[in-house]
């Protein structure tokens, strides 16, 4: 297994696009963490002398300001930090749910498996955004709903992948041995199945992070996600799109950040997956 991962790592290193993406991701993470110290402006302090001012290096606001005179660089970094945090937390949640569900379906098999997979099929056919919007009608806007709904989407693919992996190891000797020794189903799944499928699954999880970030910014863009005074890249882009004729930087800065972030995460995830997939051919 570790030799296998070693090969994959070597293959990843020889993929310039994925490497480049990795540095972009690291760069953005470092920037969002260190940003507040680099920038004299707070993300919600108002500078009434510089309202909707252009980006300029010599002024205090490198990326310009918005209509309220808030520093766009600081706002964008905060938005990126929120988007990244939501992406990571929600991915982790969907990973846990997906692994539990998928491993159970794959291990138990038969009718249970069939029914569980059918549920996934139905859920992934629904346009979940509509579902989320519908939920907002019922419960009103709140940020917990955002996490709940994002979590509801993310685990579907994960569960499928885990199930596939589980099926492939289900009849291996160590599982049979555990069954023979009288271990219960739940115990076998937790102690024997999950530890053996987790490697590839974590890699696939890297591809759900950008999906979740995209979903979060979509909802925030619609005004259903992160609420003022907090910023996410989605809300910043929504503000920017409204001002794009007069203050295009308000769109370009957060839009560019989101584009680069999502692109890097996707390219890196693809590279990682290809590096592992090559192993199976």
């Amino acid at each position: 297994m570790s030799a296998l991962l070693g090969d994959a790592a070597r293959r990843l290193r020889s993929n310039p696009a994925a490497l480049c993406a990795m540095f972009f991701i690291l760069g953005m993470v470092v920037l969002t963490l260190l940003g507040p110290w680099l920038n004299p402006n707070g993300s919600d302090s108002l500078d009434w002398l510089h309202v909707a001012s252009r980006p300029a290096l010599q002024s205090a606001h490198w990326f310009g300001t918005d209509r309220l005179g808030r520093d766009l660089f600081a706002r964008t970094l905060e938005g990126t930090r929120v988007s990244l945090a939501v992406g990571l937390v929600a991915s982790a949640v969907s990973l846990i749910v997906g692994i539990g569900y998928g491993a159970a379906a794959g291990y138990i098999g038969g009718r249970t498996d069939h029914a569980m997979m059918r549920i996934i099929e139905i859920l992934s056919g629904l346009p979940l955004i509509f579902f989320v919007i519908f939920l907002t009608v019922i419960f009103g806007r709140n940020e917990y709903l955002l996490f709940l709904s994002i979590g509801a989407v993310g685990w579907l693919t994960m569960a499928r992948i885990v199930r596939g992996q589980t099926l492939s190891i289900r009849h291996r000797e160590f599982i049979e041995a555990a069954v023979a020794s009288g271990a219960g189903t739940a115990r076998i799944i937790c102690r024997h199945v999950i530890p053996n499928v987790i490697g590839p699954v974590v890699v696939y999880a890297t591809l759900t992070v950008p999906q979740i970030i995209m979903l979060e910014s979509f909802l925030s863009f619609l005004g259903l996600g992160i609420q003022e005074p907090h910023a996410s890249l989605g809300t910043l882009i929504a503000e920017g799109a409204g001002e794009m004729e007069a203050a295009p930087w308000m769109l370009l800065v957060p839009g560019g950040f989101l584009a680069v972030l999502l692109l890097s995460l996707n390219v890196f995830g693809d590279g990682l997956r290809d590096a592992l997939d090559a192993e199976e051919r």
Partner: peptide
């Protein structure tokens, strides 16, 4: 990777 609500304003710009 890039969602339509980023693509469209960029194209419009």
């Amino acid at each position: 990777a890039i969602p339509s609500f980023v693509v469209l304003p960029f194209l419009g710009l």
